[in-house]
Nucleic acid binder design. Structure first.
Lengths: 341, 341
DNA sequence: CTCGCCACCTGAAACGTTTCACGTCGCGAT
DNA sequence: ATCGCGACGTGAAACGTTTCAGGTGGCGAG
């Protein structure tokens, strides 16, 4: 059923090594032999066995990317960026989804290590040292942290400056005259979330505004955004914030739905700023102001760093690339009624 | 660096086979030996080499899913459904993205075949026989078609009745009094698209309504939806449709944006119905009516069929599971101004 | 005619597992 | 004391590649 090189060799009347040569260095075998072998391959429907190949080679040509949430358009865009680079270099990307769950992440990493992947792009669930990642690095498997842990000495990373992003969002809202601002997102242990919050807090502090009301969510999703907004709506009007900065667009979209359901108008009653500027943000019920990140470029750059380290581990120097986010202002944070400034 | 079983055996002072037994049938080795081996494994940081294992075993434990578009929430939900089943069975899912591009699909299938994956869930780009898929099936690799090609004899499939979905959408619009209806989506060669259109057409025909104006898009995405809507807007008002049925929600969201940008009101000037009922449909600028599909269940069922075939190929009978879609009515197809019926 | 070289091909080793037919040892039954 | 048996270990074969040190034969140069 599964023809092997040996059978191909037999059928073509050549030796095993010759078939391998046809496969790997066709130029060094004479045209007629080559043709005979190719015919045999065709006739038998031979397909290389990658396990055997890898076993011999010691490593594979696939690059893995472990993301926090496949359902989040932010990550799918990062994936596409990485794919474009890796496939351009003749490799293959496999996508693993940790779903923000540490144990699933562990299982994925274990399997990937057993598979001796060529390299790993990963946005880890938790930010502390990940023994599994360290071990892979020690083993010589290049690891690039995506949107995480800038500054670790033993691996590259790409990230977007989340503190700046948080700052941009808070400054924008402060300039629009908001004093009571809420921050919604979580878990706060996620570095992204913590940084965005910290950026917002320091921007507010600089303006002598009170720190934001923080509503923590268990994960970043539309439904947790709804729940958080419900909480905010339930506050007495005097303490209720006039603006919400959400840690990502999914949360913001959920919040938008809940606010609207409670009869609150956005931005008139409550302004809203999201994060990521996913494609759906601009098309929301109220077009969502958001902090834009260069998602595909994040993926591309991460993949480039990985391939670079992979092809020349000797001269490779770990780098930490940080991109700048941008504020995209839309209706959700701009009062429609004339009242400029 | 990469310790092998042999080194573990040496260090533990046992034979190679014993280490393997500790790994695979710990119960048949005496507790003290087991412990010694485990310590050696620990100390050396030994990690099984999956290539070698697979080579010996002849196949891997990973299941691949090849989707048309990772960025489409429809597919990410299908993936999650499949993941839940496969991981429950101790396997692993890798996600490959064809992006609707036949050549990328081919490359992915080639690589997956070389990797001797345990099985394959796939939504192929084109609907005709895929020689690569046939070959994999012949090779004994179970293939389940997702949302495609129901009725092929040599493989299982799961799908949602797209003809019915198209019918539901068209009936809904016809009942709301629309006569000139457009169908937007493409490529028309995609079975989903063709079926949804066919369903809509037959529903209209049964009511003696004219067939829909078909605007074909190169792919199903937000941006192509925008372009298509621009075209429709450019039509003279007398010929312009009063309702648009889009082949999926991405297209519908794009159309919604374009219509709004041109100052047309939805649903008053043009009604809109999408397909898939992705999470973002309900949160759109005008909440989108849509045809809901059981996305996660689609993935779960596909994975179950696959595992079933994989574990007992002898008794397996190929099945074709078809789910029913449902209409979710929201504001985009309901006139706000009182004028019920 | 002989030598050396080149082009081409061969065969075996090695990669790290798993599996399986066999040893070995100790102990209870006879 | 001997036999048989069970429990535990062993070692080699096999999986399908790739690689590499050599073989072989033909041909031009001397």
């Amino acid at each position: 059923m599964a023809a092997s090189i040996k059978e191909v060799a037999q059928r073509a009347g050549v030796s095993l090594g010759t078939v391998s040569n046809v496969l790997n260095r066709p130029d060094i075998v004479s045209p007629q032999t080559r043709r005979r072998v190719q015919e045999a391959i065709e006739e038998l429907g031979f397909v290389r066995n990658d396990s055997a190949r890898q076993l011999r080679a010691g490593r594979s040509r696939t690059v893995a990317i472990v993301v926090l949430d496949v359902s989040n358009p932010f990550f799918t865009d990062v994936v596409r960026g990485a794919e474009s680079v890796v496939e351009g270099a003749g490799g293959m990307v496999v996508v693993c989804n940790s779903g923000g769950d540490a144990s699933r992440e562990h299982r994925h990493l274990d399997v990937l290590e057993e598979q001796r992947v060529q390299g790993l792009l990963v946005t880890p669930v938790s930010d502390g040292r990940q023994p599994r990642l360290d071990r892979m690095v020690k083993r010589g498997i290049p690891v690039v942290l995506v949107d995480r842990g800038a500054g670790l000495a033993n691996q590259c990373s790409v990230a977007v400056d989340d503190v700046l992003g948080g700052r941009l969002a808070a400054e924008h809202l402060a300039e629009r005259g908001h004093r009571r601002i809420a921050f919604v997102g979580g878990p706060l242990s996620l570095r992204q979330v913590a940084d965005r919050r910290a950026g917002a807090e320091s921007a507010l502090a600089e303006r002598d505004l009170p720190p934001p009301l923080v509503v923590e969510t268990p994960v970043l999703s539309v439904s947790t955004g709804r729940v958080a907004a419900d909480e905010i709506v339930a506050l007495p009007a005097t303490r209720r914030p006039t603006a919400i900065f959400c840690a990502n667009d999914l949360v913001a979209l959920g919040a938008l739905q809940a606010l609207t359901a409670h009869g609150l108008r956005v931005p008139d009653d409550i302004a809203l700023v999201g994060y990521d500027d996913i494609e759906f943000a601009a098309g929301a019920a109220v077009p969502l102001s958001s902090i834009r990140q260069p998602r595909e470029q994040l993926g591309r750059t991460a993949a480039q760093l990985l391939l670079e380290e992979s092809t020349d581990p000797e001269h490779h120097e770990h780098r930490h690339v940080v991109f700048q986010p941008e504020l995209a202002v839309r209706q959700s944070s701009e009062r429609k009624r004339r009242r400029t400034r």
